[in-house]
Design a protein around this nucleic acid. Structure first.
Length: 115
DNA sequence: ATAATGACGTCGG
DNA sequence: TCCGACGCCATTA
């Protein structure tokens, strides 16, 4: 969905391309307590790869629920672990016991219905 | 045109 | 389960 003027996550003053908007819109739809991997998002969007999604998140992730985007093994982006943890606790995201990794089997969201 | 880079993923040891 | 090597894909240098 392309907004005519900045009012969403891209309200930073700069224009974003279509791919970026699409990735961000998917991230925004991930329900609380659920996650998607970079690869999942790339596949869902249908172009680019995990690294492209990573680039988008690095540049624009600040305006969306970035902690709901994790690596395929369930670990949040390196350097964001501490902040991500508090969000997981607040949303009761399923975690693997005794680790900082999300339980992908439980928390992975396919983009379909919210459950 | 070639090489390096990056909020990644998969495979083998 | 942990780790390193290699693969991927678009962007930048």
């Amino acid at each position: 969905m392309v907004e005519p003027h900045p009012s969403g996550p891209e309200a930073d003053g700069e224009a974003v391309d279509e791919y970026t908007e699409e990735v961000l819109s998917v991230v925004e739809r991930i329900p609380p307590g659920r996650v998607m991997s970079y690869g999942d998002i790339a596949e869902y969007v249908g172009r680019g790869g995990p690294r492209q999604v990573g680039s988008v998140m690095s540049r624009w992730g600040g305006g969306v629920p970035w902690w709901r985007v994790v690596r395929a093994d369930g670990r949040p982006a390196e350097g964001h672990l501490v902040r991500a943890r508090s969000h997981y606790a607040a949303e009761a995201t399923p975690m693997r016991p005794g680790s900082d990794r999300v339980d992908m089997r439980e928390a992975r969201w396919d983009g379909g219905s919210e459950d």
